[in-house]
Amino acid sequence: MAKILCIDDELDVLETCTTILKTKGHTIKCAGSGSDGYLKAKEFSPDLIVLDVMMDDETDGFHAAYKIRQDEKLKHVPILMLSSINQASKFKFNKEKDGQFLPVDEFVEKPIIPQKLISEVDRLLHLSKDKINTEGVRNIY
């Protein structure tokens, strides 16, 4: 049982994640933008954050991830990033390589496969504090 914050600008993604994670007894909160997500994270102090890459310029998911990692209280919250990048290009996020540059702990591709989301969430929730990827270089673009 954990507190999970889902951040995405798309209602349907929030809906899907909520439905899946609720069946495992987690408490879910949702936010519709990166900036709102950061504020809600401070209030709710979640055990895990599910974050979309997001296309919207100002509130993009990477920025939210950097802000969370710079926050003393939130720094050690594991972040699971949702992306659909690999469909567009053959490019695929690689945790070993890109994890150094993006301060997130795991990537899950859309469309969401329930079992995959659940097992990654479980794994991250058990990750120890010092294994969280708190580093990352700012200018990844």
């Binding site: 349907d12 439905t19 659909s84 567009a88 469309p111 496969i113 329930p114």
Partner: peptide, 27 residues
């Protein structure tokens, strides 16, 4: 074109994610 690709991808992903939920009878 890249925005268009995103605009086309998001609804398909959303629908497929929902169908995945149904396939596994999550509700």
């Amino acid at each position: 074109i890249s925005v268009l690709a995103h605009e086309l991808k998001s609804p398909i992903n959303a629908i497929e994610s929902y169908l995945n939920l149904m396939v596994e009878s999550y509700l």
